[in-house]
Design a protein around this nucleic acid. Structure first.
Lengths: 130, 130
DNA sequence: ACTTATAACAGTAACAGTTATCAATATTGA
DNA sequence: TCAATATTGATAACTGTTACTGTTATAAGT
């Protein structure tokens, strides 16, 4: 199945790649609709899944029921605020050490991992102090 | 809202605490039905959510669309096989170091984290070799 | 440019997991 | 035993997502 070009897919990826938050399919749909008013929600889901398969985007499982999407496929992890639900990137040098530690105690083969951090984002932390 | 005792909740927790896999609500429902044939799926969901709120169980977000449940609330992490989808506990001494590393590069407050490991479980690894 | 093959589309119905509603029942404390 | 209310079973509703269908857009060959 060779990919064909489509402006809908362009619009979706174009929107996502400028983003550092991690929108859901629904948010992406509403946003892309401003450029492509006739786009269908099904098209958004279909293309997000194609983009994921081709490795252009990744998914982030926040645990709120919906899947979030991230056009930054570099090796990084995520922080989820338990108060406002926002999702932020979190940079960690030396996190790859984690895989080594885990592999020592496991007899299968570990190919990758995701770490999700929970807590209060700096905004919510500020609001609590006030 | 003070909790009242219920045999349905007992049955659910009783089933879950003997388990080292991480069943979904649906699996729990089918299993508990053998002891409590009249139990409703809604009751299962309701009690799982109560048990989680009271800290007796925790949820595991495997990323397969359904929420998995774990009666082991001790500090441990999970491995998800990308082939068969099974979920296993993974023991890691010194994983708490991860939080420290992450906190250094983040200006909110990190209260906890979950790491999900992906790869091939020992069974699937064996099958591939054969 | 015209044709053909097929990926992608919009629209919508269907689906899975979960939550909410509600009248009836079970548990608790007085 | 009685009243207060948490819990229940049954079911309807809701949400995020996927599948289906007839139509349109894209790419490649002529």
């Amino acid at each position: 199945m060779t990919l064909k070009h489509s402006k809908q897919r362009d619009a979706i990826y174009g929107f996502l790649k400028d983003r550092k938050d991690h929108p859901t399919a629904d948010v992406i749909y509403e946003a892309v609709r401003k450029k492509e008013p006739n786009i269908s929600l099904g098209t958004v889901y279909r293309n997000l899944s194609v983009l994921k398969e081709t490795g252009m985007i990744r998914t982030v499982e926040v645990g709120d029921g919906a899947v979030h999407f991230d056009a930054d496929v570099s090796n990084h992890n995520h922080f989820i605020c338990t108060e406002c639900g926002c999702v932020e990137d979190i940079e960690m040098k030396s996190i790859d050490k984690v895989r080594e530690i885990a592999s020592e105690n496991f007899d299968g083969k570990i190919t990758g991992f995701n770490t999700y951090f929970y807590g209060l984002c700096s905004d919510c932390l500020e609001k609590r102090k006030a």
